[in-house]
Structures are given as structure tokens and as C-alpha cells.
């Protein structure tokens, strides 16, 4: 069993993947005409790792509602590593895959605000969906979602939720970007992300930094990993029919 080491709030010191959302948007740009069909393919098992070159953590003081949110400092975008330096909560995506397995798209996704933290921190979704937003805290939260467009961002919705257990639902449809940034206007350390995709070949790494993508058509693909605190990094993976390919994506040395 892995004993996890929490590199809360660390960020990479190397410029090539310095957490740029603009770079991320470009890296995660996808073909928009995905064609689903029967696939007799293989799969990819992989790990996302992080090198030693981490700079100081970004921490934000918990300046209000301490009886609910806790004391001290919080980290908007934690970089959580295993003992083997596997990176938790990286989104891994096959880039520009035009056809593949059928995708039973979920139409509804959830996000919960509890103890002034968003759950889940990161998830992936189709380019349009309904988001159910629950505030479990007896304090006002103000969820503010943005579509990332290059270096800019555009408000998707901005909802105040003053009541505990208040639920709101909101239709989300992106126009130009592929990443959704979620803040709380009432608690500036709260952060969550949704990466959208035109195809189902996406995964989020587990606490060991591992991921698995199944039913991939045979061929060679670019595999992109993205983390909000680190930016993006890619590798190539060659998949053969009825076989599992191994992939390692490394941020830094």
C-alpha cells in the first residue's frame, strides 16, 4: 500500500509546463467531429510523474468563516504526490482521436461545497451538460464558473447559495474553450476544474498517479496530461489490438 506524500500547493519551477491555462487550452484542443463505432482495440495503462524541481507552495489565508472553513491557510490547486512521485488529479487525454468506442455521455454532473472545499476537485465531462451544485455548509458560497479562452476567461454562471443544503442546477455549454475553472467568490481559496472532451478517451489519475484508458483503436496517439498547478505535458503511445500499452508522462526531470 502506498504511503502518500502530500506536496500541497507545490508548483513546478520549470517554464515549459508552468501552469499556463493558455498552453493547457491549446494542448487539450480536440477534433470536434468524433465518430463513435465498434472498436476491437487495446488499452493504455500509465502513470503521471513529477520531478524534483518544485517551487514554493501557493497558500491562501482562510480569512473568514473559520468555524466552518478551518484555520490557517488553504491551497487552491494542490499538487499531491505518492511516494513514487505519482501525481494525483491529473487529467489524461488522447489528443485528436477522431473515431473510437461509443460514448454514453452523462448528462448530469455534480459538485459539492463542503467545509469550504469543492468536491470533486477535478473531473471531465462532455462539452455540454447539466451541473448540480450543492452547498452543504451553513455559510454563503458563491460558485463562479468560467470558460477558459486562451489566457482569458468568460463567466459561465455565477450563483450565490446562502442556505445550507441548497441545490441549484445549471446548464453548461462551452463556446470556444475546453476547460472550466470554478471559484467561490466568497472564499477565494476554493478551486475546482472540469475538463471537457469531445470523446471518451479521458481519465483522471488516482492517488498513485495511475490511469487506464480502455478500448482504444489500434494506432499511435499523443497522450496529454494536464494539472491545474502544473500545466500540460505529453508523450506518445502506440496501441496494438487486444494489447495493453504502457505510458509514462513526466513533468520535469
Amino acid at each position: 500500500m502506498l504511503s502518500r506524500r502530500d506536496m500541497i500547493g507545490a508548483s513546478m519551477g520549470f517554464a515549459a509546463c508552468g501552469g499556463s491555462l493558455a498552453l493547457a487550452g491549446a494542448a487539450l484542443a480536440q477534433a470536434s467531429s468524433y465518430v463513435p463505432g465498434a472498436v476491437i482495440g487495446g488499452g493504455i495503462d500509465g502513470i503521471v510523474r513529477v520531478g524534483d524541481n518544485l517551487s514554493a507552495a501557493e497558500q491562501i489565508i482562510i480569512g473568514k468563516d473559520n468555524h466552518i472553513c478551518g484555520e490557517g491557510h488553504a491551497t487552491p490547486d494542490p499538487v499531491t504526490l505518492s511516494d513514487e512521485r505519482g501525481l494525483k488529479n491529473a487529467v489524461v487525454m488522447i489528443k485528436d482521436i477522431a473515431r473510437g468506442k461509443p460514448w454514453a455521455k452523462r448528462e448530469r454532473f455534480d459538485i459539492v461545497q463542503e467545509k469550504c472545499v469543492f468536491h470533486p476537485y477535478i473531473q471531465f465531462a462532455p462539452r455540454s451538460f447539466e451541473l448540480s451544485i450543492l452547498n452543504k455548509d451553513p455559510v454563503l458560497h458563491n460558485i463562479h464558473a468560467y470558460e477558459i479562452i486562451g489566457r482569458a476567461r468568460r463567466t459561465l454562471f455565477n450563483i450565490a447559495q446562502p442556505q445550507a443544503n441548497q441545490v441549484d442546477r445549471h446548464k453548461v455549454a462551452l463556446t470556444r474553450g475546453s476547460i472550466i475553472e470554478i471559484d467561490c467568490d466568497a472564499h477565494n481559496w476554493m478551486s475546482a476544474w472540469i475538463v471537457t472532451s469531445d470523446h471518451p478517451y479521458v481519465a483522471v489519475t488516482d492517488s498513485a498517479g495511475r490511469f487506464a484508458i480502455d478500448d482504444v483503436p489500434a494506432g499511435e496517439f499523443e497522450l496529454v496530461a494536464w494539472h491545474p498547478g502544473l500545466g500540460s505535458m505529453s508523450t506518445r503511445a502506440k496501441v496494438a489490438s487486444k494489447a495493453r500499452a504502457a505510458a509514462t508522462i513526466s513533468f520535469g526531470a
Binding site: G19, L140, N142, H144, Y146, R151, A152, R153, R154, T155, N158, A160, D183, D185, A186, N188
Partner: peptide, 22 residues
């Protein structure tokens, strides 16, 4: 910093600024 964030060009990156909560 919340409307002038170094990570967002020392602005807030949004078309229209977020404003005070509420």
C-alpha cells in the same frame, strides 16, 4: 490580488471583473 492576479496578467482574466461577493 483577486482582481489583479499575477497568474492572470495582473488582471482577473475575466471579460468583466468578478466584483465583491454578491
Amino acid at each position: 490580488v483577486d482582481c489583479h492576479d499575477p497568474k492572470k496578467g495582473w488582471g482577473d482574466g475575466n471579460a468583466l471583473s468578478r466584483g465583491y461577493p454578491g
